[in-house]
């Protein structure tokens, strides 16, 4: 029999205990203002697992060998959505800090290579393409390759098609919307030029044979993916990126993710717009 939800109470101590643990495991820190959001999801899982109270649930989750419950809770605690220009301060960082630094030290005419993973339905790589066109003068001097990968072939097909809801494009500046999209009923179709600017590929980051060929990237965007991984998978991903980058290349993670907690391979770079991670120039 399911317990009565109204009888399950998450005390202040429970919340703090959970918050500290969750932060340590995922890097996600909940402010006290998020208390209702956290409590609601905790109670949902306490009920679903018939744990009865927070204490039993917390012990079960913490010591479950498979880590499945923590993963499930992580999924619940994160809002898995994407849209154009999401966390756009990182794109500002790309065009105002990262790319200028990269081209300044460039000694060859090799194209600048950007890898975007996960691709999801394509909003992020297309945003990068638009940002480069609109806010980076260097696009007239340098060739750029944008590669975007995901494990889900269905979502990759959606990305290739490039048809989006009004909600997905709500942050796109009006002039960009006119320039790069065509309204089709209630949806927005991204233009052919941008569709041709991004190559979409299927990749499983945990599979060495999938990632072996991904090398010589200048910049990697991997935002809001590693929070869904366990520690070992995060470390594996960090090492894949390290091998995929040129010396001096950059990794951009999501706002709640920190490479410092995953791997010591990277240097932290604090740019005015964002914190990113760099493979040192001396690395090979």
């Amino acid at each position: 029999m399911k317990s009565d939800m109204s009888k399950i109470i998450i005390s202040e101590e429970d919340f703090l205990k959970f918050r500290e643990y969750f932060y340590r495991k995922t890097g996600i820190n909940f402010e006290t203002t998020k208390r209702y959001f956290v409590d609601k999801r905790l109670i949902e899982r306490i009920e679903a697992t018939d744990s009865g109270d927070f204490r039993s649930y917390f012990i079960m989750m913490r010591f479950q060998a498979s880590g499945a419950e923590l993963q499930l809770l992580t999924n619940l605690m994160t809002v898995n959505e994407t849209y154009f220009l999401r966390e756009d301060y990182q794109f500002d960082c790309l065009v105002n800090s990262i790319l200028p630094e990269l081209v300044k030290r460039k000694t060859d005419n090799r194209p600048i290579r950007i890898w975007c993973i996960p691709s999801s339905s394509g909003e992020e790589p297309y945003t990068i393409a638009m940002y480069l066109m609109e806010r980076w003068p260097g696009i007239h001097q340098w060739d750029v390759e944008i590669l975007s990968s995901d494990i889900d072939t269905g979502i990759l097909n959606k990305a290739r098609i490039g048809r989006y809801s009004a909600r997905s494009v709500m942050h796109v500046p009006a002039p960009w919307l006119v320039k790069y999209f065509t309204r089709v009923g209630d949806e927005y179709q991204i233009c052919q030029d941008l569709r041709e600017a991004v190559e979409f590929t299927r990749v499983n980051l945990a599979e060495p044979t999938d990632t072996r060929g991904y090398r010589n990237f200048d910049i990697i965007f991997c935002r809001n993916l590693l929070i869904y991984f366990d520690d070992l998978s995060r470390k594996t991903a960090a090492e894949v990126f390290f091998d995929a980058l040129i010396p001096g290349g950059f990794v951009c993670l999501g706002h709640a993710e920190s490479m410092s907690r995953i791997s010591s391979l990277y240097k932290v770079r604090k740019f005015p717009q964002a914190i990113v991670y760099q493979k040192s120039l001396e690395s090979r």
């Binding site: 393409a129 060739d143 750029v144 390759e145 590669l147 041709e196 072996r212 060929g213 991904y214 090398r215």
Partner: peptide, 19 residues
């Protein structure tokens, strides 16, 4: 200068260093 797609494939250099 522009976006390049045809070369936007996994680097072939990798194949040489890790056959």
């Amino acid at each position: 200068m522009a976006f390049i797609k045809k070369q936007a494939q996994p680097s072939t250099e990798q194949t040489q260093s890790t056959p």
